[in-house]
């Protein structure tokens, strides 16, 4: 910065979008990936989807500071809704074929928002770690309902039916799925940057740091947490729909279980929950580690997660992005 500049233009700004260039760089890498690693599309798609899940989780977990260990349920709502409603006979007659699966995705988002509203209304009266515990319980209830119902395929799960082409694109083609997942990540990233610059973003950070302090400044903590949860839920369900496309067939124990919820939370926490790009970086780093070490150890994922959680809690409570920031690097000036 230059020395004295009296004009008001040079005064410090707080209302910024955060480090946009870091996001542009990360998105550029994701954009180039299929052209370079066209053979490893499965890895690319799942990495992107999990990055998007972690980004969605972080709107509640990072910005509002409410650790949820039940987000797989919201993902599941998206996956089930899209799969069930993709079957032609379940569609409302006015819907024509190219939009068919997206109708289910949209309904899934609406249901997820409604579920989050009730779930948050019930559990945000609880402080701190009680919310995390109760989120496990709520997710468990949703899983039990799914397993014990016939229309959900019960414990067997569901198959994605044949889908019509989407404006000429085959939705079961890995390349199409990559770009859909890419769009999902970009969407969550853009939304996070918008939150960063908004009144809502500052209210959420205030609530995260000190609820009574926020209340004294006219902020309703329960309302802000609920808003964050509903936004987070909508994005989770959207990602869940894409995940169902990618999996083509899934069972409740792969898509509604606690380990999946924990994994999503850990990607964000290890990457840096108080930063914009942290969850994305966490997902990329952990996926690459998992892939590299998969051939060295069996069950490498568990080992790597265990070691990384230890390292992060001991040495980098702000996650990987926090390390960058602390190193004095301008990379991702957080928030």
């Amino acid at each position: 910065m230059t020395a004295t500049a009296p004009s008001t233009r040079s005064r410090p700004r707080a209302l910024t979008f955060g480090n946009v260039w870091l996001s542009v760089a990360l998105v550029a890498i994701l954009f180039i990936y299929p052209f370079v690693f066209g053979k490893a599309m499965n890895f690319g798609i799942s990495t992107l989807l999990f990055a998007g899940f972690a980004m969605s989780w972080n709107i509640l977990g990072g910005w509002a500071g409410q650790t949820s260990l039940g987000h797989a349920a919201l993902l599941g709502i998206g996956a089930y809704s899209m799969t069930l409603l993709a079957t032609p006979e379940r569609l409302p007659p006015f819907l024509t074929s190219p939009l068919a699966p997206w109708w289910g995705a949209l309904i899934g988002m609406v249901i997820a928002v409604a579920v989050a509203a009730v779930w948050g209304w019930l559990t945000f009266r609880l402080q701190g770690s009680y919310f995390a515990l109760s989120s496990i319980a709520v997710a468990l209830v949703i899983r039990l309902v799914v397993i014990n119902s016939n229309w959900t395929g019960g414990a067997e799960g569901l198959f994605m039916p044949d889908l019509p082409k989407f404006f000429g694109f085959d939705l079961f083609d890995r390349e199409t799925e990559y770009w859909l997942a890419f769009g999902f990540v970009v969407l969550t990233l853009v939304i996070t940057h918008l939150i960063r610059r908004s009144r809502m973003g500052y209210a959420l950070q205030a609530v995260r740091e000190d609820e009574d302090g926020a209340r004294a400044l006219g902020i309703d903590p329960a309302r802000m947490k609920l808003l964050a949860f509903m936004l987070s839920a909508a994005l989770m369900a959207l990602g869940g729909s894409l995940y169902a496309l990618y999996l083509q067939a899934f069972e409740p124990h792969t898509i509604l279980e606690l380990p999946l919820s924990i994994q999503i939370a850990l990607l964000a926490i290890i990457g840096g929950r108080t930063t914009i790009q942290g969850p994305l970086v966490g997902a990329l780093v952990l996926s690459i580690f998992g892939e590299v070490f998969r051939n060295v150890f069996s069950n490498a994922n568990l080992l790597i997660y265990g070691v990384l959680i230890l390292l992060v809690t001991l040495f980098a409570p702000q996650g990987i992005m926090g390390l960058f920031n602390r190193a004095g690097s301008k990379l991702g000036t957080a928030r």
Binding site: P12, A14, Y202, Q205, A206, E209, A214, L217, I219, R335
Partner: peptide, 12 residues
């Protein structure tokens, strides 16, 4: 709000 800057604190 310790994570926020002085200006951001007042902005809230």
């Amino acid at each position: 709000f310790e994570d926020l800057s002085v200006l951001e604190n007042v902005l809230v």
